[in-house]
Every structure is written in C-alpha cells, then in structure tokens.
C-alpha cells in the first residue's frame, strides 16, 4: 500500500544543532557526521514538528517523490 504521509526535507544550510532530532516522535532524524540532519524516509511521517523547532528554518515538509 502506498504511504500517504508527507516527508521532511533538509536543505544544505542545516547547522546540525540537533534540535529536530530531539522532537522527532519517530526518531527518524540523525545528525550525519556533524554536518547535516538526515531524515530516514521509512520512519518519517511528515508531522512537521522538526520544521517547527528548526532554528535555521531549513526543514521543509513536502510530498514524497
């Protein structure tokens, strides 16, 4: 069955602070090599909590492609 959830995308301006990681209810976010947040597409449900708290506003909730 096709998943209807949206997905979170992270731009390259991410500062890797980890604020998003703490609020993600599905533990779908990790900070990859201290450079950028990485979202596990299989876990992300596109709830948008990460985008709401991201201090750099670099997270965007969009349709899955």
């Amino acid at each position: 069955m096709e998943r209807k959830f949206k997905l979170c995308y992270v731009s390259d301006e991410c500062v890797a602070c980890g604020t998003c990681m703490k609020v993600c209810p599905k533990s779908a976010i990790s900070i990859n090599n201290g450079i950028k947040a990485k979202v596990d597409a299989n876990k992300c449900v596109g709830c948008g909590k990460c985008a709401k708290v991201c201090p750099a506003s670099v997270m965007r909730i969009g349709e899955r492609v």
């Binding site: 500062v15 890797a16 602070c17 604020t19 708290v53 991201c54 201090p55 750099a56």
Partner: peptide, 13 residues
C-alpha cells in the same frame, strides 16, 4: 526568532 536561534550562529557550533 526561534528559541535556539543562537545555535545558528554560535561560534562553537
């Protein structure tokens, strides 16, 4: 701005 805005330009970060 947002609560952790300091993290965006924190020199240590």
């Amino acid at each position: 701005f947002k609560p952790r805005s300091w993290c965006v330009y924190c020199p240590m970060g």
